[in-house]
């Protein structure tokens, strides 16, 4: 369960928020000239990044405003929160070493490796 920092309200529990998909997908300006393939790209195609992912959240049970976040989807660690219209900050975070980001033969070591040692297993 996440603790999410709304840029307007501060730290709150995840249950106050709703995830609103990949960030920085802007609605096409000249939609009347677009091909079906371009529409498909805008409407449906997604990066679905494993690693640092820019996403929108809405503070549904709070200020009801949208904002953006950077999160590492391989570890679920939040890296930054920023307002709509702002550029994502430069982040130096661990990205998965291999495409799956997990040690060979593991269930899901990316998560375990990221956990601080004092938290135990």
């Amino acid at each position: 369960m996440f603790v999410i920092t709304c840029p307007y309200c501060g730290e709150r529990d995840q249950s106050e928020f709703a995830h609103a998909g990949e960030a920085h997908i802007s609605r096409p300006r000249e939609s009347e000239t677009m091909t079906d393939a371009e529409w498909a790209e805008f409407l449906f195609m997604r990066d679905n990044t494993k690693g640092i992912h820019a996403e929108r959240w809405i503070h549904a049970a709070g200020c009801r405003r949208f904002f953006n976040a950077l999160r590492n989807t391989a570890t679920d660690r939040f890296l930054a929160f920023y307002r709509i219209g702002e550029k994502p900050p430069e982040i130096d975070d661990v990205v998965p070493a291999t495409p799956c980001g997990e040690a060979v033969g593991s269930g899901n070591d990316a998560v375990k490796v990221e956990r601080p040692p004092e938290a135990g297993r």
Binding site: F2, H19, K50, T73, T75, N108, V111
Partner: peptide, 13 residues
């Protein structure tokens, strides 16, 4: 869970 993730774990709510 409403959010995307690759961690094979979700939220308690």
């Amino acid at each position: 869970d409403g959010h995307t993730s690759y961690t094979q774990r979700g939220s308690l709510d």
